[in-house]
Amino acid sequence: MTASALALSLCLSFSSFAALALSLDRHHRAVFRVPAPRSRTRSLRAAGWSGLAVAFAASVTCSGWNFGPVQWIGGLTGAALLVVAVMSYRPAWLRAAAVAALPLAMLALPFALGA
């Protein structure tokens, strides 16, 4: 396991969990101050679940089948804790943090694949 592979998994999982959180009406209202339209809810759920699948694929690609799923579960745990912390203390920051995590994941990708 390298730090870049873990950062990749963490960033992808964070963005995915943020999308899943924002697909819930209560969290959507906390961030956007309006109820979630049905079309946005569906697209956020699809993006969240797809992002978790991409995070799993990235973990397995970077660390192999022996350690990849373990690394993915660790990234899920850390990302879920971060989403809960942001939603608890600064819900308006969740959208910006999730969008910022995607370029960070793309920066970590070449280093994670090279290891």
Rank of each mutant, 00 (worst) to 15 (best):
M1H: 15
M1Q: 12
S4G: 07
A5L: 05
A5F: 15
L6R: 13
A7H: 14
C11I: 03
L12C: 01
L12H: 07
S13I: 03
F14S: 08
F14P: 02
S15R: 06
A18T: 11
L20P: 01
A21K: 12
A21Q: 14
L22N: 09
L22Y: 05
S23N: 04
L24G: 13
D25P: 07
D25T: 00
H27K: 13
H27S: 09
H28M: 03
A30M: 08
V31A: 04
F32T: 06
F32A: 06
V34I: 14
V34E: 09
P35M: 01
P37R: 04
R38F: 10
R40T: 15
R40L: 14
R42Y: 06
R42P: 03
R42V: 10
S43H: 12
L44I: 05
A46V: 03
A47W: 00
G48I: 01
G48P: 06
G48D: 02
W49P: 00
S50K: 02
L52G: 04
A53D: 07
V54M: 07
V54I: 15
F56Q: 10
F56N: 00
A57T: 06
A58K: 01
T61C: 12
T61A: 14
T61F: 10
C62A: 14
C62K: 02
C62I: 08
S63C: 11
G64A: 10
W65T: 07
N66P: 05
F67H: 06
F67A: 12
F67E: 13
G68W: 05
G68Y: 00
P69A: 04
Q71M: 07
W72G: 01
I73A: 11
G74R: 05
G74K: 02
G75I: 05
T77S: 12
G78S: 07
G78E: 06
A79T: 04
A79W: 00
L81F: 12
L81C: 15
V83W: 03
V83D: 04
V83T: 02
V84H: 12
V86I: 08
M87L: 13
S88D: 13
S88H: 11
Y89W: 15
P91S: 03
P91K: 08
P91Y: 00
A92G: 11
W93K: 09
W93R: 09
R95T: 09
A96N: 11
A96F: 07
A96I: 12
A96Y: 15
A98R: 07
A98I: 03
L102C: 05
L102V: 14
L102P: 12
A105S: 08
M106K: 14
A108W: 08
L109T: 11
P110T: 07
G114R: 15
A115G: 15
